[in-house]
Lab assay of single mutants.
Amino acid sequence: NNDALSPAIRRLLAEHNLDASAIKGTGVGGRLTREDVEKHLAKA
C-alpha cells in the first residue's frame, strides 16, 4: 500500500525502479524503512 510510504521512501523506490511489495518492511506496522530498501539493494 503506497499510502503508508514516506515521500523519501517513495523517491528511493522510484530512483531504483523497485516495487514496494517486493520488500519486507521492518518498521512500525510493517512499514518500509530506508534500511529495508538499502538492504534489498545490497542483495540485488
Rank of each mutant, 00 (worst) to 15 (best):
A14D: 10
G29T: 03
S6W: 08
P7R: 09
L13F: 05
A4D: 15
D3P: 11
E35T: 09
L5G: 04
T26P: 01
A8H: 10
R34E: 10
S6G: 08
D19L: 12
L13Q: 00
N1D: 15
A20S: 07
K24H: 10
E15G: 05
E35Y: 10
R34G: 05
D36A: 01
N2W: 05
S21A: 12
N17A: 08
A42H: 09
A14V: 07
A8G: 07
A20L: 08
L41S: 02
T26M: 03
A42G: 08
E15Q: 15
V28C: 06
A8L: 09
E15S: 08
L32V: 12
G29N: 12
R10W: 08
L18S: 02
G25P: 09
L32W: 04
K39G: 09
G27E: 02
A22R: 09
L32N: 00
H16V: 03
G25E: 01
E35K: 09
L13C: 04
R34F: 15
I23A: 01
A20D: 04
N1F: 09
G27S: 03
L18D: 01
V37D: 00
L5I: 13
E38F: 14
A42K: 12
T33G: 01
D3L: 09
E38Y: 14
E15R: 13
K39E: 11
E38Q: 09
S6Y: 05
S6A: 08
I9Q: 03
K24I: 12
G30Y: 02
A42T: 08
K43Y: 11
L12Q: 05
A44I: 15
T26K: 03
L32C: 00
H40C: 04
D3M: 10
G27R: 01
S6D: 15
R11T: 12
L32D: 00
R34H: 09
E35A: 12
L41T: 03
N1M: 13
A22H: 10
L12C: 09
E35M: 08
A8F: 08
D19Y: 06
T26L: 03
G27K: 01
D36Q: 01
L18E: 02
R34P: 08
G30K: 03
P7V: 10
T26S: 10
G27Y: 01
D19M: 09
L32A: 03
A14T: 08
N2Y: 06
L12P: 02
L18V: 09
L5N: 05
A22C: 04
L18H: 02
L12R: 04
R34L: 15
G27C: 00
R11S: 11
I23Q: 02
A44R: 09
A22S: 13
D36P: 00
S21H: 09
D36G: 00
A14I: 10
G27F: 02
L12E: 04
R31Y: 06
H16K: 04
G29K: 06
L13H: 00
D3F: 04
S6K: 04
E38R: 08
N17Y: 06
R11H: 15
G27T: 02
G30D: 05
L13A: 01
V28A: 13
A8T: 08
S6H: 10
A22L: 13
A44D: 11
L18N: 01
S6N: 07
T26V: 03
R31V: 13
D36E: 02
R11C: 06
P7Q: 12
S21K: 11
L32H: 02
H16N: 07
S6L: 07
V28R: 11
V28P: 15
A42E: 11
E38G: 05
V37A: 04
L18I: 13
N1Q: 14
R31L: 11
A4R: 13
A44E: 11
S6P: 12
L18W: 03
D3Q: 12
N17I: 03
E15F: 14
E35W: 10
G29P: 02
R11I: 12
L18T: 05
D19H: 10
K43N: 14
A22Q: 14
A20R: 06
A44S: 12
D36R: 00
V37S: 00
D36M: 01
K39N: 14
V28N: 08
E35R: 11
A4S: 12
A8P: 06
V37Q: 00
G25L: 03
L41I: 15
N2D: 15
K24Y: 07
N1S: 14
R31P: 02
D19I: 09
N2P: 13
A22I: 09
G29L: 07
D36Y: 00
A14E: 14
K39Y: 10
S21E: 09
G25Y: 02
L13T: 01
G30S: 04
A14C: 05
G30F: 02
E38W: 13
R10T: 09
A14W: 12
A44N: 14
N2V: 14
K24N: 08
N1T: 14
E38T: 08
A8S: 10
T33C: 03
G25Q: 03
A14K: 13
T26W: 03
N17G: 15
V37K: 00
V28T: 10
L5K: 03
L12G: 01
G29R: 06
L41W: 04
I9H: 03
R11E: 15
R10K: 14
D36K: 00
I23L: 11
L32Q: 01
S6F: 05
T26C: 01
G30Q: 05
P7G: 08
R11P: 05
K43G: 12
G29Q: 07
K24L: 12
V37W: 02
A20P: 14
L32T: 04
G27V: 01
E38N: 07
E35S: 09
A4Q: 13
A22M: 14
A22F: 08
A22T: 11
G30W: 01
A4H: 14
A20E: 08
R11A: 15
E15V: 11
G25R: 05
R10Y: 08
R11K: 15
G29V: 02
N1E: 14
R11G: 09
A42S: 10
T33K: 04
K24W: 07
P7L: 12
D36H: 01
V37F: 04
D3N: 11
T33H: 02
